[in-house]
């Protein structure tokens, strides 16, 4: 944990492609709007996410971290560039193929948990497999619910569970189909710090013990510190990365970013992420 490295901007863009990359972006760009009012949310990003690793994407509000995740997960279409999941270039896929890709190869953990209120925890967890017309791997299911500590909650509906429990159910739902990669969007954003810490531990355990690949978007340096590697984003570009981060290292990295860019924090940074969290 001590061997933290802060790689400057110039080096980050030239970083080499790891052979075991689960997710890759090449020259990935996204522009919102047209003409003078257009905003370049993501500017020719090249980045690799290794399989079997827990990576955090960090950056200030408006840095493009959510946009990057949407493009990598096939939730939104890129303006230019390529994104790959495994060997599949998802930037070439249509809506139907993207849907099937998400169903079979990608898992999601949401800030708002997004469990279906009319289903029990167990029904929520097994839903993706059933929608795909497959059969639930009971052994894997048991492993998951044990690891996540929700065996006692399987018959409960979301409204009968705490936020932390709901998020653990959501993690189990994301992992049930053994996806190649799980995207987590601010998974602790709606949790108190203790539940948040638990959830992050589970995410890390599912990488270390269950061999999953997780990419997490967060603004919280403490949350990012649970990851194996932190990718820093600023102004739609990769601004650096930290391997084996500690909260202090991450904070230092963010501060360095700010001082690198401008002495005053960007006042224009706004959007949905600007809300108090």
């Amino acid at each position: 944990m001590d061997s933290t490295t802060f790689v400057p901007v110039a080096d980050a863009t030239s970083h080499r492609s790891a052979p075991g990359a689960a997710v890759r972006a090449r020259g990935l760009a996204k522009t919102y709007g047209k003409g003078a009012s257009s905003v370049r949310a993501l500017d020719a990003v090249d980045v690799d996410f290794a399989a079997g690793r827990f990576t955090a994407i960090m950056g200030p509000s408006g840095s493009g971290k959510s946009t990057l995740m949407h493009l990598l997960a096939g939730l939104d279409s890129a303006t230019s560039g390529q994104a790959f999941i495994g060997a599949t270039e998802i930037t070439r896929l249509g809506d139907k193929e993207l849907t099937l890709l998400r169903r079979d190869r990608v898992g999601f953990v949401f800030q708002q948990f997004n469990l279906l209120p009319m289903f029990t925890a167990e029904q929520n967890i097994t839903l993706p497999v059933e929608l795909a017309g497959g059969t639930v791997d009971r052994e894997w299911f048991t492993t998951l619910v044990r690891t996540l500590g929700i065996e006692q909650r399987l018959g409960h509906r979301p409204s009968e569970m705490s936020g932390g429990q709901q998020q653990r159910v959501a993690i189990a739902r994301a992992l049930i189909a053994k996806p190649e990669v799980v995207f987590a969007d601010e998974p602790t954003g709606n949790l108190d710090s203790r539940s948040g810490a638990e959830v992050l531990s589970f995410l890390r355990r599912s990488v270390r013990e269950l061999g999953r690949t997780i990419i997490m978007v967060t603004h919280d340096p403490a949350a990012a510190a649970y990851a194996d590697r932190v990718v820093l984003l600023a102004d739609g570009r990769i601004a650096g990365e930290i391997t084996d981060p500690t909260p202090e290292a991450v904070l230092a990295g963010l501060d360095a970013l700010r001082s690198l860019e401008s002495p005053v924090p960007d006042a224009a940074a706004g959007g949905p992420e600007a809300g108090a969290r």
Partner: peptide
Amino acid sequence: RRESATMRAIGVTTGQ
């Protein structure tokens, strides 16, 4: 709305 979006995100096709 959110549920529909969630379902789309976790792989429910538009047809489904």
